[in-house]
Amino acid sequence: HVIHTVGPIVGLEVTQRQKEELKSCYINCMKLAEKEGLKSIAFCCISTGEFHFPNKLAAQIAVETVDRYLSSSKLERVIFNVFKEEDYNIYKKLLQ
């Protein structure tokens, strides 16, 4: 399965609405994965890169959102798939 989501595009600064939109990307993907009977899901760094969402803030939103969601979910595993070493270090610190 491939679940496609499009996160917010950030201009000069991140707005509260964009933070909520990013959070919604993660929640909606996890809901759809559960609906399809999947037990795991992998996420890339949604909205970073070309969409200019700051990597650290995006990772914080991702980890907090997934952590809250998993407390009442049937999903067994969530993977954060990163490409850049910078992102690896951010996620490693957040997940310790």
Rank of each mutant, 00 (worst) to 15 (best):
V2D: 08
I3C: 02
I3Q: 02
H4F: 03
V6R: 02
V6I: 11
P8C: 07
I9V: 14
I9P: 04
E13F: 13
V14W: 04
Q16Y: 07
Q16E: 11
R17A: 14
Q18M: 02
K19W: 01
K23T: 10
K23F: 05
S24M: 05
Y26H: 06
Y26D: 00
Y26E: 00
Y26C: 01
Y26P: 00
I27S: 01
I27Q: 02
N28M: 10
M30T: 12
L32H: 06
A33W: 01
A33S: 09
E34H: 03
E34L: 00
K35Y: 14
K35L: 15
K35H: 11
E36R: 15
E36K: 15
G37R: 10
G37L: 14
G37Q: 14
L38N: 08
L38G: 06
L38P: 03
S40M: 12
I41E: 00
I41K: 02
C44D: 01
C44H: 04
C44P: 09
C45M: 03
C45F: 07
I46E: 01
S47R: 04
S47N: 06
S47I: 05
S47M: 08
T48P: 01
E50R: 15
F53H: 09
F53A: 00
F53L: 01
P54T: 09
N55D: 15
N55L: 09
K56I: 12
K56S: 13
L57N: 06
L57G: 03
A59G: 06
A59T: 08
A59Y: 04
Q60H: 10
I61Y: 06
A62Q: 05
A62C: 10
T65C: 05
V66P: 00
D67Q: 11
D67I: 10
D67W: 05
R68P: 01
Y69D: 02
S71I: 08
S72C: 11
K74W: 04
K74C: 02
K74R: 00
L75D: 00
R77T: 09
R77K: 10
V78A: 00
V78S: 00
I79R: 11
F80E: 00
V82L: 06
V82M: 07
F83K: 07
K84D: 13
K84I: 13
E85G: 08
E85L: 07
E86R: 11
Y88G: 12
N89W: 05
K93W: 09
L94F: 10
L94P: 03
